[in-house]
Write a protein that binds this DNA or RNA. Structure first.
Lengths: 213, 213
DNA sequence: TAGATTGTTAATCGATTAACAATC
DNA sequence: TAGATTGTTAATCGATTAACAATC
């Protein structure tokens, strides 16, 4: 069977569709047309229909889309019907912030452990998890199912840590360290580069540009 | 004078160039060709040259680019030669994590105050800043130069807060709340949607795809 | 000078938008 | 049935890559 290659641009938009549909669902909206949704989201209706049709026909001519059904289908596409075990390495403020983010759990991402090297942090409790010593990391990974590792350690430590994680079998990394991790292509890395986000804001504020997106 | 419109794709890449050049600078690399840089960054040399030439000719034929000069020029393009006063609204873990991120200061982003509604947090110190009551926010903004407001409050509170901020004259918002803020177009909003980032990771892990980027 | 590498134009590729036939 | 709106093809637009003349 031929596997359609979905473009990155489309995938990047899916979570946003999911969010808007979730909001509509909360407001008990039953159906929505691509045109109405396009006005809310400030994209073209055409783009919405094209995007969705990469995955299948979720709508109905003359009617539009059933909000609950579409929300659920996009959730499945995004893998939100799966439970993921996540651990966090680096239990500073950012690591703790992630551990405290309840919404992740609602989407199927369960924080199972936090690790740190700092004796000050080891032993502290964060949302029911005792922060463990980084020395226990290898053992932990080898004895537990870990789907996602969030890396919130300093830049200098991240590449070696990532290499070790891969060696121990980790396939999914959520990287907050301000560096690129060059890992085998069967390992999925999603980067969150806060400093770069702030620089983009700076660029636009400094007025070399009058972007509208 | 005609103002060239720089595409969003280009701007999104600038901070990454800046980071790689900064790393080279730390290693005392003096010059680099687009070809060498392209190999490190895993992009095409052509793209690098095209991107840079949106802003001017920073290189020299037969030589390449001077690392220090190019780093500095990209910094200027990104507005990193400007000092920004930033305040953080929502002093939970995420807000505190941002306040503690030293690197921001190095780039010219100074955290001047944190605000929260929680009596537990108000009065606490974070990196030399006493967390203030959100009641003082309007006064603070009216009496101080505030260039950037980082919003780390719950989703439900974010839209009203953003509307107030705009009313009080704020032009730059770094939004961490999982919602879109619909603000006048002279207000610049940069979003960091962590949940959406995690969903993208989930999509790729759930294997509907074998992306190579 | 010869060699290297940029700056820039032209060609290609991919993504977005428009249009409309299919169909609920 | 008539009206609405999708699914999908075709047209357009923009971004990336290739190629090469300019030039250090």
């Amino acid at each position: 069977m031929y596997k359609k290659e979905i473009s990155k641009a489309v995938i990047n938009r899916l979570p946003r569709y999911y969010r808007y549909l979730g909001d509509l669902l909360e407001k008990d909206v039953v159906r929505i047309s691509s045109k109405e949704l396009s006005e809310k989201m400030k994209v073209t209706a055409s783009q919405i229909r094209q995007d969705l049709n990469n995955f299948g026909g979720f709508g109905q001519q003359g009617y539009g889309y059933n909000v609950e059904y579409l929300h659920s289908e996009i959730g499945k596409i995004l893998g939100l019907d799966t439970k993921y075990n996540m651990i966090i390495i680096g239990a500073g403020n950012l690591g703790q912030a992630l551990a405290n983010y309840v919404d992740f759990e609602r989407r199927g991402f369960y924080v199972k452990a936090l690790f740190d090297v700092s004796p000050k942090l080891i032993g502290q409790e964060v949302r029911g998890n005792i922060i463990k010593s980084a020395d226990e990391l290898e053992d932990y990974i080898k004895n537990n199912k870990v789907d996602i590792v969030a890396i919130t350690v300093p830049k200098a430590k991240a590449p070696q840590l990532a290499a070790d994680l891969v060696k121990w079998g980790i396939k999914g990394i959520w990287n907050f360290a301000p560096t690129d991790l060059n890992l085998p292509k069967d390992v999925t890395v999603e980067n969150v580069h806060l400093a770069e986000s702030l620089m983009k804001l700076s660029y636009r504020l400094s007025g070399k540009d009058d972007m509208r997106d």
